[in-house]
Amino acid sequence: MRVLPEAEWRARERAHAERMRAWTRPHQERRARGEKHPVLDFLFTYYSHRPAHLERWQPGIDVVLAGAARHFLDRPGFREVDGGVALDRGALTPARARTARFVLDLLTATAARSPRLSCFGLHEWAMVYRLPPERVRHAQLPLRLGTAGTDRVVESLDIRCGHYDAFRFFTAPARPRNALRPSRETQRDLEQPGCLHANMDLYKWAYKLDPFLPAELVGDCFALAVEIRELDMRASPYDLGELGYPPVRIETAEGRAEYARAQAEFTRRAAPLRERLIARCRDLLAPEDGDHAENN
């Protein structure tokens, strides 16, 4: 058990909360005004981790918080130990252990594959294919190329989306155009490290293991998901110019090359986060093996 002096853990607690509030506070202010943000709301609606929980700091397992840490005892899983307060490994219920096993298996399989960088964000286009304007998800936004132009892009490019949680939102006419048939059952077999949504989902897998992961790791996954979401929507058929998001014009060869370069960079940045999550899951599931992951 590593002991964190009070000054150290309090500094980390403050730093994490301040970092996350750069996103949580604007979201809460928009919500209070009844405003929607087609890019950033996704991080708080599709992903179900509450802003207050995202701001909340925790050290992860095998860490003793020295000093005045009794407020942690109000949270499930924390208990008093010699020298302070710590998260009890015994709080990992069988259901949470199954989640950790699923995450470990999925991320290990994903990490073992070569990235594929040729999807060009067409999943967003397939979600509006042949829809009347009033049924488009972000109906408040114009389509850059109009309805007919958007449909022509879908019909002119190959769609090869292997991420089930994107594919399930395809319109009925778009589904047969996808070269793959992802399902929840085939998720482990199809997810690959170049997929923007698989890399955004690192945040989901991190918060599903809360409070057993350090808050900084959850925060790192969230911060990357924010950036990936911006590319995801910039490459979409929507016109986000008034919100300050220049388009990535994947309907052109230059735009597809720009998208692939950005996708490759996110693939590179997601890899160490995926490895940190894998290490944490292994540590949770096999504590008797010793060598716990470094607390970061």
Rank of each mutant, 00 (worst) to 15 (best):
S114G: 04
V81I: 12
R130V: 00
R113E: 01
R89Q: 06
F102E: 13
L92A: 13
V103K: 03
S118T: 14
P76Q: 11
G121N: 04
A126N: 04
V85P: 06
F102H: 12
T93Q: 00
L92Y: 10
R96L: 15
R96S: 10
R135G: 01
A100F: 14
V136W: 07
L92N: 09
L143Q: 12
V85A: 06
E134D: 12
P115Y: 10
A86P: 02
R75Y: 14
E134M: 03
C119Q: 04
E124G: 05
A86D: 00
P133T: 06
A100S: 08
G90T: 08
W125Y: 15
R89I: 01
D88N: 12
P142G: 05
L107P: 01
A97K: 13
P142Q: 09
A95Q: 05
L122C: 07
R70V: 07
R130F: 01
L143F: 10
A139Q: 13
A95E: 11
R96P: 01
P94I: 09
G77L: 05
D105N: 13
H123S: 06
A97W: 09
L106R: 12
L104K: 05
C119T: 12
V128Y: 03
A111K: 05
T108H: 06
P132D: 13
W125H: 10
P142W: 11
E80S: 12
P142D: 13
L87Q: 02
E134G: 00
L131H: 07
H123V: 04
R113N: 00
Y129C: 03
R98Q: 15
R79I: 07
G121S: 04
R113L: 00
W125K: 02
R101K: 11
V128T: 14
P76L: 08
L143G: 09
V103A: 15
V81C: 12
V85N: 09
S114C: 00
E124I: 08
A126G: 08
E134I: 00
H71T: 08
F72E: 07
L122M: 14
R98W: 15
P132C: 06
T99G: 06
E80H: 10
E124C: 06
G77T: 04
L141S: 09
A111M: 02
A86C: 01
V136I: 15
L107W: 03
V128F: 03
L104T: 06
A112D: 11
E134N: 04
R98S: 13
H71R: 10
V136M: 07
P133L: 11
A100W: 14
R130M: 00
V128A: 14
R130T: 03
V85M: 07
L143E: 08
R130K: 12
L87K: 05
P94S: 11
G84C: 05
V103P: 02
G77Y: 08
Q140G: 01
F78P: 05
G90Y: 10
F102L: 10
R70E: 15
A97V: 01
V81N: 11
H138N: 14
W125D: 01
E134T: 02
V85S: 05
L104N: 04
A112I: 09
R89A: 11
A91F: 15
E124S: 08
R130N: 01
L73S: 04
A100C: 08
E80P: 02
Y129K: 03
H71V: 03
L143D: 10
R75E: 15
D82C: 04
F120M: 01
